[in-house]
Every structure is written in structure tokens, then in C-alpha cells.
């Protein structure tokens, strides 16, 4: 067995783990519950547990430890409310010289899309948003959610089909 000198108890290592994973972890829980505050509390709690158990967790297992703890905390504590996802208002502007009608129509479409995403079943929503907002590969999403890549792909496809049905003809 190779002797790994890195330890989660080392403050530097702990901080780099935090920097690598806290954002996606926050988003992951946020996509489930739609409450930024709650999501951030869950993340804090997960990192506190990691710190307490730092002697027992190998560095390379820290990520899955965090996701498992966060997911359990979420399931235990967070009341399942209707999800209202608040996306940041500053939507990147990727086209220029639009007519007012186009802008209005685009706004309406984005509203519909947001509502439809919020209405997705939790399992489809987390996969869909981790892929589309956080740009995570299916393999990584599989690791985060603890399901197989095949299952991730299936949920992704279902999410798209459901969204299209909800939004309907453009």
C-alpha cells in the first residue's frame, strides 16, 4: 500500500478540498431543494463532519464522503417543499441587435423554461442542471448522485422529453 502523506487534517489540504468541491456541492443540494440558505447550511455541515472525521477519511475519498453526508443531511432535515429555483438575473447576453419582440419572446421562453425545470422530478432536475449549469460530465454526475452512467443518461433524456412536452410548441 503506498504511503499517502497527504491528510485531510492538514489545513491546506482541507482548504483545497473546500475550494474544489464546495460550489458544486452547494449547487447539487440547491437543485434538490431550491433554497440557497438551506443548501449552504447543508454544505457547511458536511465540511464540519469531514473535519471532525479527518483522520478516518482518505483524501481521495473526501469527495464521495462529502456528497454522501450532504445527501443524507438533506434527506433527513430538509422538508420537501415546492421547489422555486432562483436563477441569477444576469442572463448572459449571447446575441446582439434583437428586435423588442424577439427580446420579449425570448424572455417568455426563459420564464417557461425555468418553471418547467423547477417542475421536473428532483432526480431528473439534479442531473439536468449539473450537466447544463455546472458542465459536469455524465461520469462525474454518476459519481455525485451515486447511480450508474447509464442511469444518468436515461434521466437526462427523460428530462429533455419532459421539458419539451411542458413547454410545447414554440
Amino acid at each position: 500500500m503506498p504511503l499517502d502523506t497527504k491528510s485531510v487534517c492538514d489545513k491546506k489540504v482541507f482548504e483545497s478540498i473546500y475550494n474544489d468541491h464546495s460550489k458544486t456541492l452547494r449547487n447539487f443540494i440547491y437543485y434538490k431543494c431550491g433554497d440557497v440558505q438551506q443548501a449552504e447550511d447543508v454544505v457547511q455541515e458536511a465540511f464540519i463532519k469531514l473535519w471532525k472525521n479527518c483522520a478516518k477519511v482518505f483524501v481521495e475519498k473526501a469527495k464521495s464522503f462529502l456528497y454522501t453526508v450532504a445527501n443524507n443531511t438533506f434527506l433527513n432535515e430538509v422538508a420537501h417543499k415546492k421547489v422555486v429555483l432562483q436563477h441569477q438575473k444576469s442572463i448572459k447576453n449571447n446575441s446582439t441587435s434583437e428586435t423588442p419582440e424577439f427580446i420579449l419572446e425570448e424572455k417568455e421562453f426563459m420564464m417557461k423554461l425555468k418553471n418547467a425545470i423547477a417542475d421536473l422530478p428532483e432526480k431528473q432536475r439534479e442531473v439536468f442542471l449539473l450537466s447544463r449549469i455546472d458542465n459536469k460530465k455524465y461520469s462525474e454526475i454518476a459519481e455525485i448522485t451515486g447511480i450508474t452512467i447509464k442511469a444518468v443518461e436515461k434521466r437526462m433524456s427523460q428530462a429533455l422529453i419532459v421539458l419539451r412536452k411542458k413547454i410545447g410548441k414554440i
Binding site: 464546495s22 452547494r26 449547487n27 440547491y30 436563477h87 444576469s90 442542471l129 447544463r132 455546472d134
Partner: peptide, 12 residues
Amino acid sequence: GAQILEAPKFDQ
């Protein structure tokens, strides 16, 4: 459309 959405800001 989904790709231009952003999650709320996270002040790491």
C-alpha cells in the same frame, strides 16, 4: 436556453 442559466452566486 438551459445553458445560459446560472445558479445563484456562491461566495466561496
